[in-house]
Design a protein around this nucleic acid. Structure first.
Lengths: 248, 248
DNA sequence: CGAAAACTTGACCCAACTCAACGAACGTGG
DNA sequence: CCACGTTCGTTGAGTTGGGTCAAGTTTTCG
């Protein structure tokens, strides 16, 4: 993928977060991204490290961010797909408070941190779009806290599957409520706070009830309404409608 | 508290998030905050609402943000103390994805949304400080996800108590690892994903083991090292050292 | 084709939940 | 300043959702 295509993808993404004019787009096109490929489970960043020179923007593949507890348990705190910034927090924080790894073969655009900071400081529309992106990420964290803290295993797993469906559709890498989910059941468990064994039983129960279909790691829903219902899922928290600055 | 004192408090807070020069401070002093008092459990904002005209900055008292699950369970997703912005996400998002309520008698500075947006767009140092503030909040969300997802009740509750200690000390409303925690055990449970009954047993167990002392709703630690240890607590995620722009 | 990784399944266990009752603290109004 | 209702905290007994352990089975991939 050429540099040009990469930046067009980034522009497309930011335009879902706020209006950009031609000058904004030119400013983005003037960035000099480096394409970089990570093979799972390569680390993109490690907890405790100082910030890198670059911020990663996901072009294709999946990545996740994780933290470890003293008992050795792992918690995945976010999963990233095409069009996501992987470590926006490094734009302004001194130390990584978590690690990030490639979940699949991962293709990223590495964008110079200083150049990105500068563009954010100089172009208000881009700043706004980046703000929205960061705030939506915060909203997803809050929903995960609710999901893990207050929902049972069935609801929790279903909720994660619903979130992926909508996010992947919004990113243009899935449609009709079907998508490839290249996560192992252990990773799903680490994302929702369950053991792999229980994730297995839960997925099979959802399938047995006709709510989901699984072929290898391809997921599809018989009825969006039905799974949505089981999952206690409302798309509000994804803030997929932020494009225009409507009532601002 | 006069408008002036309020803004000085806000300047002090932002200076812990990044360097501000005199012009930046003047710009902040030109804001026109309205002091507003909420009595617990008054709503500051409700899920689903469009953004308010103002953003709230906490002057004194505690507030929390919460989400509800379909089964009726509540999850508190964050708790805010003096010096915290309560709804930064409303600066740029269209819809509230959660509710916020006063936990105690709560004194806020209500700052005009447009004026705050403008100051963020026009003054890079303030923008940076606000970014840092938002990113630190994201970091706290991630730690909560880990806490709720992967730690047992004892560790989880202890972790929350440690977080409060450090945050309150940083905010200047506590010292020597002792502080007032005006939360009910039910609210603590809603914050860490436990039932009030189990929070009760857990707190008493921590007290019985000599790790914490409780007098009414005053908490103190016999040994910071000891509680830190059972809590699996590391202050890294609070990013309390962001003041200077050191290696940026 | 063989080894490793991922997925399944069953049996058993336990941390946390539920239910229920009671005691203590607190604010309010008379 | 006391009576009283309400909220909050405490405790016990019994239950259960999800964890643990262990042994296959299937898939993947070099």
């Amino acid at each position: 993928m050429s540099d040009n295509t990469i930046l067009e993808q980034m522009i497309r993404k930011l335009r879902t977060r706020g209006d950009l004019d031609e000058e904004d787009c030119s400013a983005i096109r003037a960035l000099n991204p480096v394409r970089r490929v990570y093979e799972a489970p390569a680390y993109i960043l490690r907890e405790g490290e100082p910030p890198r020179r670059t911020c990663s923007f996901v072009i294709s593949g999946l990545a996740f961010r994780q933290k470890l507890a003293a008992n050795g348990a792992r918690q995945i705190v976010s999963i990233h797909i095409a069009g996501d910034f992987l470590d926006l927090q490094h734009l302004f924080l001194h130390t990584a408070d978590h690690s990030a790894q490639a979940l699949t073969l991962l293709e990223c655009a590495e964008i110079d941190r200083d150049a990105l900071q500068q563009i954010v400081m100089e172009r208000p529309a881009i700043a706004r779009a980046m703000w929205v992106d960061a705030l939506v990420e915060g909203s997803i964290f809050r929903e995960w806290i609710l999901n893990i803290g207050r929902r049972d295993a069935r609801t929790r797993v279903a909720h994660l599957l619903c979130e992926f469906a909508l996010r992947m559709e919004a990113a243009g890498i899935a449609e009709h409520h079907r998508y490839d989910l290249p996560m192992t059941q252990e990773q799903i468990g680490d994302a929702v706070g369950l053991t792999p064994v229980h994730v297995n039983r839960t997925l099979r129960a959802l399938a047995a009830d006709g709510l989901i279909r699984r072929e290898k790691r391809h997921i599809s829903f018989a009825s969006w309404e039905a799974i949505r219902n089981v999952a206690d899922f409302s798309a509000l928290y994804l803030h997929l409608d932020q494009a225009s600055s409507r009532e601002d």
